[in-house]
Structure formats: structure tokens, C-alpha cells
């Protein structure tokens, strides 16, 4: 599902060159739940951004669901993100001005779909994460765990093949963290979704299919 070969990412400023990733090769199979671990600054988030087409590598190739994306322009990349990828962020990144259900609808806005269908799918996604009773609430009225569940509903509403989660349990207590992990695992099991999750939490990572470790931008296993 995801193939990365010889990925290198260098950040350049006027005076400094920082190597964020180097020689990263990674194959993630369809329906695999992969954890990426490593200390802060090891390049985990950069890797996730590159897989998610939010950032481009300085060199190397990426194949996502059979598509070589290296030469794609903004519009085409946006289309692939919309159709194939769902994101879950550590700090949720919900739009505070929109209700829960409107937040969940965001990925569907960029698809040709009627408002009615959009609403039905958003409500179904919220049901999957157990938030049917909170659809009209606003993010500020929810707990951290509930917000993350909204973010997961937003990530799965478009039924993407890949979900990229950047420390989804990082801001939650262990009970909430386990709840979120259970939801993610059920997505893999029930829908065959491929998940790449960045985490600092070893016990959480151990519950996934595989762990990839990064140190100073390189794979160490």
C-alpha cells in the first residue's frame, strides 16, 4: 500500500542544512497497523508528512496505492489526500467554529456529493466512534478523548485506504488512549484500513503489527 525508497529530507535555511530523514526505505502492506517510534527530532513527523503528501522528500520515491506521486502537482496531490488518506493529529486540529458533524464533513466537502449524503456519512462515522449524541456540539464543549474521536470520525468518513495518525494518544490519559487505540484497531480489522501511527508510547506501539524506529533521521531496525 505504501512504498518508500531512499527517502531523504533536508531542510535548508540561509546558513544551516538539517538532515531530517536519510535513506528511509519502507513497505507497508494493505491492512497493516504500523507504529513509528523514536525520540523527539528523529524525523517521525517528517516521515508521516511525506507519506501523507503534506511534504515532499528532497530525494527518493513514494508509491501510494500503486501511484507514483513524486511528479504530482498541488491539485492532484490534494485529490489523492482527499480520496486515499485520512489524518489524525495529536492536537486534534478541529475547526472550532464548526459543530462536530460539520467538522466530520470536511473531507467530503471536496468530493462531488450531495449535502444529504454528506450528512448521512458524517453521522455514520460519528456513530462508529460512539459520538452520535454529540453531533451538534462544538469542539470546545468536548473532552480531549471526545475531540480525538471526532478527529478519527473525520479521518474515516471518506473511507480512505490509509490513515496517518501523529501521536493520537499523546494528549490523552491512558484510559482514553486505550479507547482511541481500540477504535484504530477496529478500523484495521473491520475495514482493512492501513494505519501508520507515530507514537512515543511503547505499550501502545507494542499493540500494533510492526514498529519502525527512527534515530537522527535514519531507520534503526
Amino acid at each position: 500500500m505504501i512504498q518508500l525508497s531512499s527517502i531523504e529530507k533536508v531542510y535548508r535555511t540561509d546558513s544551516i542544512e538539517t538532515l531530517a530523514l536519510t535513506g528511509v526505505n519502507l513497505d507497508v502492506a494493505r491492512g497493516e497497523f504500523l507504529s513509528v517510534m523514536g525520540p523527539s527530532g528523529s524525523g517521525k513527523s517528517t516521515l508521516l508528512n511525506i507519506i501523507g503528501l503534506l511534504d515532499s522528500p528532497t530525494s527518493g520515491n513514494i508509491v501510494l496505492a500503486g501511484e507514483k506521486v513524486a511528479s504530482y502537482h498541488d491539485r492532484k496531490l490534494a485529490h489523492i489526500r482527499n480520496q486515499k488518506i485520512g489524518f489524525v493529529f495529536q492536537s486534534y486540529h478541529l475547526v472550532n467554529d464548526l459543530s462536530v458533524v460539520d467538522n466530520v464533513e470536511i473531507p467530503l466537502i471536496y468530493r462531488s456529493m450531495s449535502g444529504k449524503e454528506r450528512r448521512q456519512r458524517a453521522l455514520a462515522a460519528l456513530e462508529k466512534v460512539g459520538l452520535s449524541a454529540r453531533t451538534k456540539h462544538f469542539p470546545s464543549q468536548l473532552s480531549g478523548g471526545q475531540r480525538q474521536r471526532v478527529a478519527i470520525a473525520r479521518a474515516i468518513v471518506g473511507e480512505p485506504e490509509i490513515i496517518l495518525a501523529d501521536e493520537p494518544t499523546g494528549n490523552l490519559d491512558s484510559v482514553m488512549g486505550q479507547e482511541i487505540l481500540a477504535i484504530l484497531k477496529s478500523l484495521v480489522k473491520d475495514m482493512g484500513t492501513t494505519i501508520v501511527m507515530v507514537t512515543h508510547d511503547e505499550p501502545i506501539a507494542l499493540e500494533t503489527d510492526r514498529i519502525v524506529r527512527l534515530f537522527d533521521g535514519s531507520q534503526v531496525n
Binding site: G52, L54, D74, R75, A78, H79, R81, N82, Q83, G86, F87, H93, L94, V95, I106, P107, I109, Y110, R111, R154, G158
Partner: peptide
């Protein structure tokens, strides 16, 4: 900017 980032991540192109 966070909203812009979210919209971009979920498929909004620059022109959208």
C-alpha cells in the same frame, strides 16, 4: 492557519 492546514490535509487544493 490550523483550519487551512486541516482543509489542505483533507483534500482542499490551493485554489479551492
Amino acid at each position: 492557519s490550523s483550519e487551512i492546514g486541516v482543509r489542505k490535509a483533507f483534500g482542499a487544493s490551493s485554489w479551492t
